[in-house]
């Protein structure tokens, strides 16, 4: 645009067009609807909170008593341990199953496909119960040569696979299947030219996978794995059906005796929320590091249309 303005576009008044334009202020769109919606939501939330606070059945004093009880804290510890162990095994196993799925070996591909099909195709709860009742399927676990009577060692199933082992097995094996799909997507997102370049330099397939493809796939893999961790933390509650000693099992065993069901469940809810909140904060930072970096500090201000963000 040249600086000369035609008389037609000049603002009325003595100022010239250019000066008038410089004084103009851009007013962002005001979102009145959002303010109205926020008011309604606030009102309903306040009403609900009020009714909760005054509900004697919640027994906040009981909640406060139990929140840091030994058995509760121990349950939280077990829940965290289950989450960490299952995610650890799940991630490593997921990478193995994903690499098998992308292998040129049809046997490995088939195995990997079958594994994912089976563990994603059955409910986690059913898998947990299955592992919990493993002894009903195999009373003895024997190590020997199949189809012969030769046995090197024999164990009582219930002695080897207790509730904790069953819980870890069930959660890990299930997570392997989901992690495998995430890893596979991540590997597929890496440009094929990277493999060409690695091959042309004389790298073997495993060298290329370890040092070139997987590090790049991490950008795509890490954010959904954060999600998986939050989901896993909550899924650990399922092992209460086989007495997995986790947080939910702990509060259940107490309210089964003293009938303080609601306050003890509130204790569990507070802990779960606290743990998932911590994980979400962690995930935010991880995503900021690996993700594409959309979203910025001024986002919340723009959302409410709070004037110019400068």
């Amino acid at each position: 645009m040249s600086s000369t303005t035609s008389p037609r576009t000049a603002a009325p008044g003595p100022t010239s067009g250019r000066e008038a334009a410089a004084d103009l202020e851009a007013v962002p769109l005001r979102h009145w609807g959002r303010w109205a919606a926020a008011a309604v939501v606030l009102y309903v939330t306040a009403a609900f909170a009020w009714s909760l606070a005054r509900n004697p059945n919640l027994e906040w004093d009981v909640v406060a008593d139990y929140l840091f009880e030994d058995f509760v804290v121990r349950g939280v510890g077990i829940t965290l341990m289950l989450t960490v162990v299952a995610m650890g095994i799940g991630t490593v196993g997921g990478i193995v199953v994903a690499v098998m799925r992308l292998s040129s070996n049809p046997v490995l591909r088939g195995l990997s496909w079958f594994y994912t099909w089976f563990f994603r195709g059955t409910p986690l709860l059913v898998q947990i119960i299955f592992w919990g009742f493993l002894a009903a399927l195999y009373q003895q676990i024997e190590i020997g040569i199949p189809f012969t009577d030769v046995t090197f060692a024999s164990f009582d199933t219930n002695a080897v696979v207790g509730p904790m082992t069953a819980a870890i097995l069930a959660l890990s094996l299930n997570e392997v299947a989901y992690a495998a799909e995430i890893v596979r997507g991540g590997i597929a997102s890496v440009d094929g030219g990277q493999d060409d370049a690695a091959s042309a330099l004389g790298m073997t397939r495993s060298q290329a996978m370890r040092t070139i493809t997987l590090p790049q796939a991490m950008r795509v893999i890490v954010p959904p794995m954060g999600n998986e961790t939050v989901t896993m933390l909550k899924s650990t509650a399922l092992v209460s059906v086989i007495g997995g000693k986790d947080l939910l099992t702990a509060v259940q065993s107490v309210y089964a005796q003293n009938y303080q069901v609601i306050p003890l469940l509130v204790v569990a809810v507070i802990w779960y929320l606290a743990l998932t909140s911590v994980l979400s904060v962690g995930q935010y930072f991880v995503e900021r590091r690996y993700g594409k970096g959309h979203g910025n500090a001024s986002m919340s201000r723009r959302w409410l249309g709070l004037g110019v963000t400068r």
């Binding site: 440009d191 030219g193 990277q194 060409d196 370049a197 690695a198 091959s199 042309a200 330099l201 004389g202 790298m203 060298q207 040092t211 070139i212 590090p215 790049q216």
Partner: peptide, 30 residues
């Protein structure tokens, strides 16, 4: 393949490695 160098139309540099690491990577690893 170590005896044959190749240069691609789209470069195919390893984006997660620096220029130096791109160059050193194969000699060290392979």
């Amino acid at each position: 393949r170590r005896e044959i160098g190749m240069v691609f139309q789209r470069f195919n540099l390893f984006p997660h490695l620096t220029a130096e690491q791109n160059i050193m990577h194969a000699p060290v690893l392979v």
